[in-house]
């Protein structure tokens, strides 16, 4: 039941975001940006999708419902944007000068859940200069193509996370585990 309600709400919000600007003079009632017909149709469609897809959308645990995790996620977005801007200037410098030192390294962030691994891999790929090439499904190790391999990072195997992805694993562990 919880899974059905959450799936329906998420579907309905997505539908509303995609159909803004449907308010017009010919419909009977307009609720700010939406006409009432659009909202009724969206509600019916979301309920149908919620019935069909509830087991795909929510697997087992509902720990992501905790609002504390959402607030940490919003904080993480700011931290992530800061790291991303820093890395962007680094890559811009490499584009202009052509000084690159690429290689594929392995890191063990030691995350337990699939969601956490996906979030970390996507964050690493979105940060310029690092690109997730492959994942080891057994122990959630990530293989990362790194545009500027630092000498001191290679001394320890597997490579320490702080060189490749700053403090991301710590934040992701707090959000998704």
């Amino acid at each position: 039941m919880v899974a059905f309600v959450i799936t329906t709400i998420v579907c309905f919000i997505t539908y509303l975001l995609l159909t803004t600007g449907t308010a017009n003079n010919s419909s009977m009632v307009n609720l700010w940006l939406w006409s009432i017909e659009e909202i009724i149709l969206g509600l019916i469609l979301s309920i149908i999708v919620g019935i069909i897809a509830r087991k795909i959308f929510i697997k087992k645990s509902i720990r992501m419902l905790n609002p504390v995790r959402w607030f940490i996620f919003i904080g993480y977005l700011f931290y992530f944007f800061y790291e991303m801007a820093k890395a962007n200037f680094d890559v811009a410098y490499r584009v202009i000068t052509g000084k690159i030192n690429p290689g594929i390294v392995k890191i063990s962030p030691d995350l337990k859940t699939d969601l956490g691994t996906t979030m970390l891999a996507n964050s690493i790929t979105l940060t310029p200069g690092t690109l997730t090439v492959d994942v080891d499904e057994d122990c959630n190790d990530l293989y990362i193509h790194w545009i500027n391999v630092k000498k001191e990072a290679l001394e320890k195997k597997p490579v320490d996370c702080k060189y490749v992805c700053a403090g991301f694993p710590k934040w992701v562990r707090r959000i998704a585990e």
Partner: peptide, 14 residues
């Protein structure tokens, strides 16, 4: 293969 690579650990992936 990654060009100019100093290291490629994915080669040895189990």
């Amino acid at each position: 293969k990654p060009a100019q690579a100093v290291i490629d650990e994915l080669e040895k992936k189990p």
